[in-house]
Design a binder for these strands. Structure first.
Lengths: 210, 210
DNA sequence: CGGTGTGAATGCTTTCACAGCC
DNA sequence: GGCTGTGAAAGCATTCACACCG
């Protein structure tokens, strides 16, 4: 099986999301161009990595294409095994994310929570167990947790990351603006709103230069 | 002034963040390679876009490099003008972001909040005015708000985006998993945790293929 | 026709490798 | 000697353009 370039991967996942918002049954690469701003030939090239090859002369079936993307990346289908996740930091942000039941019908399931504040882990009502931060690496190893969502305060981040690394985590979703130092086989997605704003603002500045 | 490639821009902003975490006075491209995983020559090339050119044979001054990056992209300095931002959606996520005083000493300042729930905007105590969602496009235009942080529920997103577009917003930070359709001059950063998890997971799958 | 799928060409980005500098 | 800055080469990603298909 051929390995898919990262930009393509990211677009396909967006595409999957976009398809789930669609009402029509069929869709063409030109339609998708209008919805995304990516060129239709780029979209066709991206889709060609999936070996779907049923689009000829009709456009794609919205439902099928969605499924093909999901199965290619093993995301969001009932027959794929659940992936254990944890959330680290149960302050306002952490609990907000929990309650906005942010993992809908995904294969990602939160199975543990951690916080340095022992009070919090006693008071909070959750459908999964909560532990003090000191148990982090032990519990992550034992429960076979693969992904961590980091919503702790900046001061705690680096210590937490060291623990996660030693527990052989596969990926980290980082809400903080701290830059994480991890070995190259651990994947980090930085989604700090400040960094996002800086990127947007920099793009605006950069565009008005030329 | 030369326009900077987007990948370079993103790395430089991360670098700036990373530099702020450093304690030493000087730093070499090789040090930065160890901290980031990016090759030292890539880092040198990135920095060369800044026309800094004071690093020869000594490595870079941590402080100076940080400043040069900031001024290049006009981020986070006192002498740059404040950029007006708003937050749309004041549920648990929206208010969590507010309280975690998430815009530290940046030039991004939240000057208005919006929610469809009129109760909420009456109860919440904030340092800036709150409005019902129906006032969105009017207030955004009038207050010259350039950036929006979108923390509303999925069902409301598309309507909100249409309003923001008509009010000529410059950029949107999107916490929802919905894909936004906007004209190409509006910049969107998607920071949905679900999408982030999918990207990580897909990368893991993709790597184990080969 | 109105669409896809894909070699070949183009355009970007990254790495190599080394001159130049302290 | 150690490190930067940068032409030139290599490696990727995107677009072009057209054969092919229903």
């Amino acid at each position: 099986m051929k390995t898919i370039p990262e930009p393509t991967q990211r677009r396909l996942i967006q595409l999957k999301q976009l398809l789930s918002q669609q009402t029509s049954e069929k869709i063409t690469s030109k339609d998708l161009e209008n919805l995304t701003g990516w060129s239709s030939s780029l979209i066709r090239r991206d889709i060609s990595f999936l070996n779907y090859r049923k689009g000829v002369s009709n456009g794609y079936s919205v439902k099928e294409l969605q499924q093909v993307i999901c199965s290619c990346f093993k995301i969001e289908s009932e027959n794929t095994k659940i992936e254990n996740c944890c959330i680290v930091g149960l302050g306002r942000l952490g609990t907000a994310i929990l309650e906005d039941d942010f993992l809908g019908q995904n294969r990602f399931k939160i199975v543990a929570g951690f916080d340095s504040n022992v009070n919090r882990i006693e008071i909070l009502k959750t459908s999964f167990p909560l532990y003090p931060l000191s148990h982090l690496s032990k519990v992550v190893s034992k429960m076979n947790i693969k992904f961590a969502v980091l919503t702790a305060r900046d001061e705690e981040i680096q210590k937490i990351v060291r623990e996660l690394v030693s527990a052989k985590i596969s990926g980290i979703v980082n809400y903080s603006k701290e830059v994480l130092s991890v070995p190259s086989d651990i994947i980090v997605e930085n989604i700090s709103p400040i960094i996002a704003l800086m990127n947007i603002s920099a793009s605006v500045v950069n565009k008005n230069k030329e």
